[in-house]
Design a binder for these strands. Structure first.
Length: 318
DNA sequence: AGGAATGATTAAGC
DNA sequence: GCTTAATCATTCCT
């Protein structure tokens, strides 16, 4: 694991900590990336044009992994805080001066990034080897001769796709066609066995991807917020408590959210007792097993985590 | 032009 | 031999 140290300046530019001995990352790649559309300078790097995670063209050594999403969310979380800051009332000239005098220092946050292993480009491999692909059909669509892969790109017959799609939709719980089904797709759809396998493999993978992203988008907010909050708080804890708290509430989106939730809960959690009904059954009167179905919402969980963190980080304040 | 969709390939795992 | 995951290449769409 490498530890990259990012400097978060208030103007959201990314600078290289040249004194760091933790990172040998080539920062020129980041500098040559297109200008960010948001306050986060990382968006262009981690957002791919399709569902696959693709490393930037000029960063062949930086291969995107599933961890990148987590890192991205952590970065995004922090910059959400900076975005929020922009929506705050304009800084007074005196405060602005304090900014430039360095009273509000850049915050350093350590992000752990798994070691990346360079893998050779498959395009290059196929060009070098120039092997004949397994399933090249003699169909008319042969656009270019640049690589073996491009020689056999065809759109599958609509009829074949329709057949497989119908079968897939009807067998979502077990989308693995057996031999008879495959033979039917091959003969009726006029495709090869390889094309049939590829189609189902792609279909399964891409649907899985969609499902994963859907569940992640609902869960990641809470978990990543909490994690990044913790890492930032760890750093801030090295500062004097008063200064750290001011910085945290100014920059940390999570803290701002927590503050809002606290205020909301103080209003909504006024005396409204939870209705608890204990089932009474004459036949099991002697047994004392009782099931209480209590729904704990996300706010409550985050509140509990937040309080625990505060106890850990600021015991003097508790 | 750029992103999304789609077909294909490869390596690794079982 | 089949599947998954990652990735590339091409076509489609806006």
């Amino acid at each position: 694991m490498d530890t990259f140290i990012f400097d978060f300046n208030t103007d959201s530019t990314l600078t290289n900590d040249t004194n760091s001995t933790h990172s040998d990352l080539d920062w020129t790649a980041f500098q040559s990336a297109p200008p960010p559309t948001t306050n986060s300078p990382f968006s262009p790097l981690w957002s791919s044009q399709q569902d696959d995670a693709v490393a930037p063209n000029n960063r062949s050594t930086l291969v995107a992994t599933p961890h990148d999403d987590e890192i991205y969310f952590e970065m995004e979380h922090f910059f959400n805080g900076l975005n929020q800051q922009e929506q705050l009332p304009p800084i007074q000239p005196q405060q602005q001066q304090q900014h430039h005098q360095g009273i509000i220092e850049p915050i350093h946050v350590n992000i752990n990034v798994p070691d990346q292993i360079e893998s050779p480009s498959r395009t290059h491999l196929s060009l070098v080897i120039n092997e004949q692909p397994m399933s090249c059909l003699s169909t008319p669509m042969v656009p270019r001769v640049s690589s073996a892969r491009s020689q056999c790109y065809h759109k599958l017959p609509d009829h074949a796709v329709k057949l497989m799609q119908e079968w897939y939709n009807a067998n979502l719980d077990d989308p693995y066609p057996r031999s008879p089904d495959k033979k039917r797709f091959i003969t009726e759809g006029n495709i090869t066995a390889q094309q049939c396998r590829s189609w189902f493999a792609n279909r399964r993978q891409r649907l899985k991807h969609v499902k994963r992203n859907q569940s992640k988008s609902s869960l990641s907010v809470a978990s990543s917020s909490s994690r990044v909050h913790h890492s930032i708080q760890t750093r801030l804890s090295q500062l004097p408590p008063a200064e750290a708290q001011m910085l945290a509430h100014e920059h940390c989106y999570y803290c701002q959210q927590q503050q809002q939730q606290q205020q909301q809960q103080q209003i909504t959690l006024s005396p409204s007792p939870i209705p608890l009904s204990i089932p009474t059954n004459p036949t099991t009167a002697t047994t004392t097993t009782t099931t209480l179905n209590v729904v704990i919402n996300q706010q409550t969980v985050e509140q509990l985590i937040h309080n625990s963190l505060r106890k850990l980080l600021y015991p003097a304040l508790m």
